[in-house]
Amino acid sequence: IFCIFCSFRQINFVLLISRQGKVRLTKWYSPYAQKERTKVIRELSGLILTRGPKLCNFVEWRGYKVVYRRYASLYFCMCIDAEDNELEVLEIIHHFVEILDRYFGSVCELDLIFNFHKAYYILDEILIAGELQESSKKNVARLIAAQDSLVEAAKEEANSISNIIAQATK
C-alpha cells in the first residue's frame, strides 16, 4: 500500500496559536530549554501572524521550515527539517484538524481551551515522538472513545468510593 506519509522524518514541535498570539497547545519533540521555547514561540508568533493571507504556508526559519495553516481563529504550526516535504505536513495538520472536528463537532478555540487535555490526547494518538503513527481517523476515534469511557468509569468509581466514605463517617 502506498502511503503519502512514508517518506516523512520527524516534526520538531507543534504549536497552536490564536490570531491574538495566545498559545493554545504546544508539543515539543526535540529538546528545547524553557527559555528557548519561549523565544521560539515569540519569534514564530510574530513571523506567522503578520504574514498576509495570500502568502504560502511555509516559512524558512533558523535552518528549518515551519508549515502552518489557519483554521478559523487558530494557526496550526509544525516545524520540520529543511529537506522534508511541506505538503505532507500540511496533510498531517489537516488530518489533526479533521479528527478534532469529528470529536468536538466543529471544533473551535474554546473547545481547545476548556478541553486541552483531550486535544493533547488526540495529538498523542496521531503523532509519537514527532512521527505520524496513526493515519486512520476511525482508529483514532475508537481509541479516544475508549479513553473517554475509561475516564468516565474512573469518575464513577471515585464517586462511589466517596459516597461509601461519606456514609461510613456519618
Score class of each variant (00 low, 15 high):
residue 170 K to Q: 12
residue 38 T to M: 13
residue 156 E to I: 08
residue 133 Q to C: 15
residue 164 I to K: 14
residue 145 A to P: 00
residue 150 L to G: 08
residue 59 V to E: 01
residue 75 Y to L: 09
residue 63 G to I: 01
residue 140 V to N: 06
residue 101 D to K: 05
residue 11 I to L: 06
residue 136 S to H: 05
residue 48 I to W: 00
residue 153 A to W: 06
residue 85 N to P: 09
residue 65 K to W: 00
residue 21 G to Q: 03
residue 114 F to E: 09
residue 37 R to S: 03
residue 125 E to M: 10
residue 16 L to W: 08
residue 66 V to A: 02
residue 54 K to V: 10
residue 110 L to Q: 13
residue 116 F to H: 14
residue 23 V to A: 09
residue 20 Q to F: 09
residue 28 W to P: 04
residue 161 I to D: 08
residue 112 L to I: 13
residue 16 L to F: 13
residue 135 S to W: 02
residue 24 R to Y: 10
residue 79 C to Y: 00
residue 153 A to K: 11
residue 50 T to A: 12
residue 28 W to F: 09
residue 151 V to I: 13
residue 124 D to N: 14
residue 29 Y to L: 02
residue 14 V to K: 01
residue 149 S to V: 10
residue 83 E to L: 06
residue 2 F to S: 07
residue 119 A to F: 03
residue 39 K to V: 05
residue 166 A to P: 03
residue 82 A to S: 14
residue 52 G to T: 09
residue 26 T to R: 02
residue 33 A to W: 04
residue 144 I to Q: 07
residue 159 N to E: 15
residue 88 E to G: 09
residue 11 I to W: 02
residue 123 L to W: 01
residue 81 D to M: 02
residue 124 D to F: 05
residue 110 L to M: 15
residue 141 A to C: 15
residue 20 Q to R: 13
residue 147 Q to W: 14
residue 24 R to L: 11
residue 57 N to G: 11
residue 119 A to S: 13
residue 91 E to I: 04
residue 133 Q to E: 15
residue 88 E to D: 13
residue 105 G to H: 15
residue 83 E to Q: 10
residue 33 A to V: 06
residue 149 S to R: 12
residue 9 R to P: 00
